[in-house]
């Protein structure tokens, strides 16, 4: 515990020192000159950034990296994924080691304003929830009075749990763990009544249990966790490129453009919005400093937001299986928060 305190302070110092180092360099020029994008993720996390058995990266956050790469180079393979420990994540971005960070980092005001980085826009809205056994009869987090709840120590989840317990006078006792594997094993063996962490991770956990059908996630969400890519502070053009690469994916879903029909849409669509986005008409690419077919390349090679959600997080084969319907991650047209400003 002492060691981690030491490390935290070292990193805090490093991060404070960082903005002095960061400059308004032309990240786009540097990336183009280098010939590949350096995109930072963390140690593998189910659904967002994973290694497969052949050593390739995949996941919802990796898809954002691929989209930015495809927009710049027209080839989604021209990137290098950097896996950085969570202690060093913001420093590695600030000192220019990474061009972009996309690793389920929560957008908060202190991070956005004090760490020399800018969050672009969320690509996933998460929130902390609870998993319980179905047979326990608990159907709401408010019924957890006096319950023992398993939580990983040193995370915001632990603090949120304490706040929630106090606000609703539930007298929850937190059982803390350093390692999430041990936490889950304890829960499965009956060591606690519920597990709390971000809902996407809860879903990933349940999938990994021997009998997933025995467990359920309670409806309450006790925290806001907007997760999204971040770039170094001070290079607005670069931030624009990352932001609009992600918006292009969301916009494409809204317009019904998928990786399968994008060629047909580009050739035949009469819809002016589609034609503008795919570079048939207008000149939206000029302000970004990219080629005319930047958005086409993203959708052709990576797919729209919905496709990627289903593939990694949603109900696709082998995905995490988190229902998208009714969550914040739905398109705004379906009552969610996924909304792209107009591309014109």
């Amino acid at each position: 515990m002492k060691l981690s305190t030491l490390l935290t302070s070292v990193v805090a110092f490093a991060v404070m020192a960082a903005p002095a180092v960061a400059s308004t360099g032309d990240t786009l020029d540097i990336v183009k000159k280098r010939g590949h994008l350096r995109c930072q993720v963390g140690t593998p996390s189910g659904g967002f950034y994973n290694l497969d058995a052949d050593g390739n990266w995949y996941g919802l956050d990796v898809a954002v990296c691929q989209a930015v790469t495809a927009a710049i180079f027209g080839d989604k393979k021209k990137m290098e994924i950097q896996s950085v420990s969570s202690q060093a994540r913001f420093t590695a971005l600030a000192n220019g080691e990474s061009d972009l960070l996309c690793r389920t980092a929560t957008w908060t005001i202190s991070r956005d304003t004090q760490l020399g980085l800018d969050f672009v826009t969320p690509n996933f809205y998460d929130g902390q929830g609870f998993t319980v056994l179905k047979e326990s009869g608990i159907t709401s987090a408010l019924q957890l009075k006096g319950a023992k709840v398993c939580v990983t120590t040193g995370t915001t989840s632990e603090l949120n749990l304490a706040d929630f317990s106090r606000a609703h006078d539930l007298n929850i006792s937190a059982v803390t763990f350093e390692d999430w594997n041990v936490r889950d094993d304890t829960y499965l063996k009956g060591g606690c009544d519920a597990v709390t962490i971000d809902k996407s991770s809860l879903a990933a956990n349940i999938v990994s249990f021997p009998n997933p059908a025995d467990h359920m996630i309670l409806p309450e969400t006790i925290s806001k966790e907007p997760l999204g890519p971040a770039v170094r502070h001070g290079d607005s053009q670069w931030a624009d490129i990352v932001r609009w690469s992600l918006f292009a994916m969301i916009n494409a879903e809204e317009l019904g453009v998928t990786s399968a029909n994008v060629d047909d849409m580009r050739a035949n669509s009469k819809n002016i919005d589609v034609r503008r986005m795919l570079g048939v008409e207008g000149n939206i690419h000029e302000g970004l400093g990219l080629s005319k077919d930047w958005a086409y390349n993203i959708i052709k090679q990576v797919g729209n937001y919905g496709e990627n959600y289903e593939k990694y997080i949603g109900s696709g084969e082998g995905a995490l299986g988190i229902q998208r319907k009714g969550t914040l991650n739905e398109l705004w047209t379906n009552g969610g928060l996924m909304y792209s400003p107009p591309m014109r």
Binding site: T43, P44, S45, G46, G47, N50, L51, D52, A53, Q82, S83, V84, S85, A88, N181, D184, A204, N205, V207, S208, F209, Y312, G318, A319, L320
Partner: peptide, 27 residues
């Protein structure tokens, strides 16, 4: 070195449990 983000043998062993087909495989 697996703590600082290099995928040495321990880093790889721990990543298995995060790969979607093998989610949770850690022992």
């Amino acid at each position: 070195v697996s703590i600082i983000g290099l995928f040495d043998v321990l880093g790889m062993l721990r990543s298995i449990g995060k790969d979607l087909p093998w989610l949770g495989l850690h022992i």
